[in-house]
Design a protein around this nucleic acid. Structure first.
Lengths: 242, 242
DNA sequence: CGGATGTTTGATGCGCGTCAAGGTAAGTGG
DNA sequence: CCACTTACCTTGACGCGCATCAAACATCCG
């Protein structure tokens, strides 16, 4: 069981300066750790959580289900993401949170988080910022689902995941472990599995990416980013070394 | 020029109890009022606003532009909505905010809003909640763009707009003024104008809605909501009289 | 009255879904 | 250790939903 919350610290530090005090508050928070298998539900639609859930390892997603059994994944989470920080503001969950691969997570009580707003306002505000970044990512997905072609949308997702994983140190050169099946990818992109497969092959044929054994390698970042019209501004990453 | 911020108060009061003190703080806040014509940009992508913008009358939207000139509208705002409350958390705007009809708006400084978090924590938290509701709406749009058919997605949007307008008292029985062209609707739904037109006619033919002279009338709420699989939970409306 | 803006209609074609089947790799039990 | 299963990836055939192009209408406005 993973109990290292460093991904959160990396994710926050990428957005603003984190003091030592703030780091140690986070480290010593009353976390409750737990693991889930792929496809297990972490949080149910309609529930009223009293804790928020931080992802430490693996991939998770927010899913909205339709009556006919189809689903759409509305957010893809990487380690360091709070998957439901907004649950402290919204009482009832309007969607499920599902493990998309085996994951390790850490729960903290809403009470603890709300206490932060008095004792550590800057940190509390920084956490709110991650909610806003979530919103920016969602806007980008809306733009892509509405107006981008399937291949460009897929390319854009790969760019986004790469950058988000790099923030938390989960990339190696130009590649990363992506523990996601094409079926899940289809539910993210709003496409059929068949078409996802064909678009992946198109990107491979253009020599933009490689994807073998759950490892994605970006072979030509500039061309991929240009093809996807990827502009990382919306991820609100602080400029420094690059 | 409209300078009545009551829509905001109605929108907030629909989500939680608002004390008289909180109401008067909002009313006496240092608003700066202004009007815009349709298609005028209220906030530019890439700018770093020092104020947030409250919509008082008309419709506004957040738009993401593509290089080829096409656009996607990622949010549709009704009176009472803060169109860029998140700009106090995110430094750089990742999208434009555009007037979709003639609008009246009111700006408040971020400093004022941040001051609220100390003097009126409950109110401040309630404002944060509206950011989270925004996120919930966006998730629903993602689900619709990805998995719903064009007609169901259109029906869902009409349900959503109706409910949101009713909160701020802008519906009359089952109808509302919708100052939105089909071209704008196309950019909201990620469709072509032609197809939007056809889907509208389909809804009319099924006797679900009527749309004449910028006035939409829902002729059969239950059937429309069922057809769209509309469930208002995500709008976080307090249950009371109904 | 013309010109602009928005709505409606028709014809044609492409992007992506659906259905179906085969291929591969990993895990499971006898 | 091998048959069997299960999960996932890949490929092909076919059809529908929606885009695109083009043009006719309608409405409003100066």
């Amino acid at each position: 069981m993973i109990t290292d919350i460093r991904p959160l610290i990396l994710a926050l530090a990428a957005r603003d300066v984190l003091s030592d005090d703030e780091r140690s508050i986070l480290i010593s928070a009353p976390w409750r750790f737990r693991g889930y298998d792929a496809e297990e539900e972490i949080i149910q639609e309609g529930s009223e959580p009293k804790e928020s859930c931080l992802l430490l390892a693996g991939f998770a997603g927010r899913t909205i289900m339709f009556k006919d059994g189809r689903r759409q994944i509305t957010a893809l989470h990487v380690p360091g993401d709070f998957v439901d920080l907004h649950s402290q503001l919204l009482k009832v969950m309007d969607h499920n949170v599902v493990a998309l691969s085996p994951v390790s997570v850490a729960f903290v009580s809403h009470d603890f988080l709300q206490g932060l707003s008095e004792t550590h306002p800057h940190l509390s505000r920084l956490l709110m910022t991650t909610i806003a970044i979530d919103g920016a990512i969602q806007r980008n997905w809306i733009a892509g689902l509405g107006r981008r072609s399937a291949d460009a949308q897929l390319a854009h997702l790969i760019c986004e995941v790469f950058v988000r994983l790099r923030i938390v140190g989960l990339t190696k050169d130009m590649s990363f472990k992506f523990l996601i099946t094409q079926l899940i990818l289809a539910d993210v992109l709003g496409l059929s599995v068949v078409h996802v497969n064909r678009m992946l092959q198109a990107l491979r044929a253009s020599d933009l990416i490689e994807w073998v054994k759950q490892t994605v390698t970006i072979k030509d970042w500039d061309r991929l980013a240009r093809f996807a019209e990827f502009d990382p501004t919306y991820l609100s990453i602080q400029q420094r070394e690059r």
